[in-house]
Simulated assay, not measured.
Amino acid sequence: MAKSALLKSSLAKKYWMALTGLFLCLFLVGHLAGNLQLLTPDNALNFNKYALFMTTNPAVKVLSYLTYASIIFHAIDGAMLTYQNAKARPVKYAKNNAAANSAWSSRNMGVLGTVILVFIVTHMITFWAPMHFDKNMPLQTQTITMNGQPSEYYLTTDGSYLPKQQVDQKVIYIKNRTEFYNAQANVKIKEGYKDLYKITVAFFKDAKYGLVYTLLYVLSMAVLAFHLHHGFASAFQSLGANNPKYNGLIKGFGKGFAIIVPLLFAIIPLYLHFILKA
């Protein structure tokens, strides 16, 4: 009876592991689509529009909370499965030639997942947290030359500009981090964009640690590639989608996904650090 309950519990964990893993694959595709805008020169405004949409749209917020929950559940479920499998494995199994029986990535999913979790937490502290909580996060500005005189302007969500000089002179003040208010009438007149583009570029171009950050990011994407290489096909197998007619297609698509998605993610910091002109 206890054995039957344990088996059911193990299967349930594998189902949830597969479902949350596949959902996070969809998240990766969406996140990548937005981040690829960083590869387009002079595209700061569009990237910041994307960042604003991702943090204010109600539907996206719901998906974001679902993503956070999936990451946590996937990590906890993975740790429990790793522990459960290690506990159930006979000691003599260690003497077998594991490399001949399974891929390296499949034997080290726990380690790979842990590295990815550390990366996600670091990534959120670096970019997600300032976007949501940093009261001093800069707003996007642009230098515009009029009558031969360059001046700095704040870009606003209605497509217009506000002279930064008016903010410096307290004619206009900033409230709630992005809202521009007329100081005399005390009424909201415009809203600006948080400059996530500026923060992202500065992070990877940092004179002291930019190269280190870039290489660690690329290394993390290599780890993600190994994790996806085994996890994608394994998820379908856990869900019962195990048919000789489709297995080759699923494995082939999974391998392509495991290479292309992390590779494109890795190209972004390499471009920002080595190619993009400051």
Rank of each mutant, 00 (worst) to 15 (best):
M1A: 06
A5K: 15
L6V: 15
L11R: 14
M17I: 00
A18Y: 00
C25T: 00
G30K: 08
H31P: 01
H31Y: 02
A44E: 06
A44S: 08
N48G: 11
M54Q: 02
M54C: 08
S64H: 13
Y68I: 13
S70A: 15
I76R: 00
G78Q: 04
L81A: 04
T82V: 07
Q84E: 13
Q84L: 10
N85C: 07
A86E: 04
P90L: 02
Y93G: 01
N97L: 02
N97R: 06
A98L: 11
R107Y: 00
V111A: 11
T114A: 14
I116A: 09
L117A: 15
V118F: 13
V121D: 07
V121M: 11
F127A: 05
M137P: 04
T143W: 05
Q149F: 08
L155W: 04
T156W: 02
L162S: 09
I174M: 01
N176P: 10
R177L: 12
E179A: 14
A185M: 06
K190I: 13
K190V: 01
Y193Q: 05
V201C: 00
V201M: 03
A202V: 07
D206K: 03
A207C: 14
G210P: 07
G210E: 07
L216Q: 04
L219D: 00
M221I: 04
Q237T: 12
L239H: 04
N243I: 01
N243W: 10
N247S: 14
G248S: 07
L249Y: 11
G252R: 07
F253E: 03
G254M: 10
K255N: 07
A258C: 11
A258E: 10
I259D: 06
V261F: 10
L263H: 11
I268N: 12
I268A: 05
L270T: 05
L272C: 10
L276E: 11
